[in-house]
């Protein structure tokens, strides 16, 4: 049985023309193809699944192949016509909305998305250092053996007992094996 794959002639032909040009141009070293790939990596797949880059979402998983193919054709045409990267990306944003950009722009409101993690990191670090500082300030300043809570070893039966027990146990441990 011949396998059926959804096909819409018009779109396929245009896609073929566009992509074939790129493939046959040979991928390595061709500045046009390189630019195409570089730009494709900055754009997301425009199908509803939104799961990967334009350059990666080319294996028929998408439910909206038509849209995707059209976008790829458009990109290759724009690359050919020699528009600047900025202009091309802008055209895409105008057509598909800002969602099409793989990374949020670093200006305007979406700058916030880039800054916040570092702001949080800064605040967290500040809190961390504050806690450390606070704890150290609370630390009993004297050496523990002479700290008020624990009078010197021989005067305190509990401490003496603990020390004896520990000494026995650790000594045991050394001898046992």
């Amino acid at each position: 049985m011949q396998v059926r794959f959804a096909s819409r002639p018009l779109r396929r032909i245009s896609l073929a023309l566009a992509l074939l040009g790129l493939f046959t141009a040979g991928l390595r070293g061709d500045p046009v193809a390189e630019r195409y790939h570089r730009l494709a990596a900055k754009l997301r797949c425009v199908c509803p699944c939104h799961q990967s880059m334009l350059s990666e979402c080319s294996n028929m998983q998408c439910s909206a192949r038509a849209q995707l193919d059209a976008a790829m054709v458009k990109l290759s045409q724009k690359v050919r016509s020699g528009d600047s990267d900025e202009l091309i990306l802008q055209a895409f944003v105008q057509e598909f909305g800002p969602e099409v950009l793989a990374a949020p722009p670093t200006h305007g409101f979406s700058l916030v998305v880039w800054i916040m993690p570092w702001v949080a990191a800064g605040l967290g670090l500040w809190a961390l250092l504050a806690v450390l500082h606070y704890w150290r300030a609370q630390r009993p300043s004297a050496e523990p053996a002479t700290a008020p809570a624990a009078p010197a070893g021989d005067g305190d039966p509990a401490l003496a007992r603990v020390q004896a027990e520990i000494a026995r146990e650790l000594g045991d441990w050394e001898r046992r094996e």
């Binding site: 050496e143 523990p144 053996a145 700290a147 809570a149 624990a150 509990a158 007992r161 603990v162 520990i166």
Partner: peptide, 19 residues
């Protein structure tokens, strides 16, 4: 030495509490 001493003091405190 230092850590051991501190731990022993701490243990003594707990032992007193147990008593």
């Amino acid at each position: 030495q230092r850590s051991r001493q501190m731990l022993e003091t701490e243990a003594a405190r707990v032992v007193r509490e147990i008593q």
